[in-house]
């Protein structure tokens, strides 16, 4: 997905994990994805650099779709579609 498409996505769940370091955002993502239905979209906000690679890899392994990442000032938003 393009940056513009990502920014215009309507998300079903937003998880703010900016206050935590690795593995906090991954754990938040794991907990929260259990609360949405298949096909729904979740965004994870993180300021932890390691998470940028970690969450997409985890999502693909777990059968969720990684839609892309948008950089904001001092943090980024990772978009996932639950499988």
């Amino acid at each position: 997905m393009s940056q513009e498409e990502l920014q215009n996505l309507v998300v079903d769940k937003s998880v703010d994990a900016r206050g935590t370091a690795c593995p906090g955002p991954l754990l938040e993502a794991k907990k929260s994805i259990g609360t949405i239905a298949s096909g729904e979209i979740m965004e994870v906000l993180s300021a932890d650099e390691g998470t940028k690679r970690d969450i997409p890899k985890w999502a693909n392994k777990k059968g969720h779709e990684y839609l892309g990442t948008v950089e904001d000032s001092g943090y980024f938003k990772i978009y996932l579609k639950k499988g």
Partner: peptide
């Protein structure tokens, strides 16, 4: 603890 919680996230 960090490694274990990563494993937990991976079920």
């Amino acid at each position: 603890g960090v490694i274990m919680s990563g494993a937990a996230a991976d079920d």
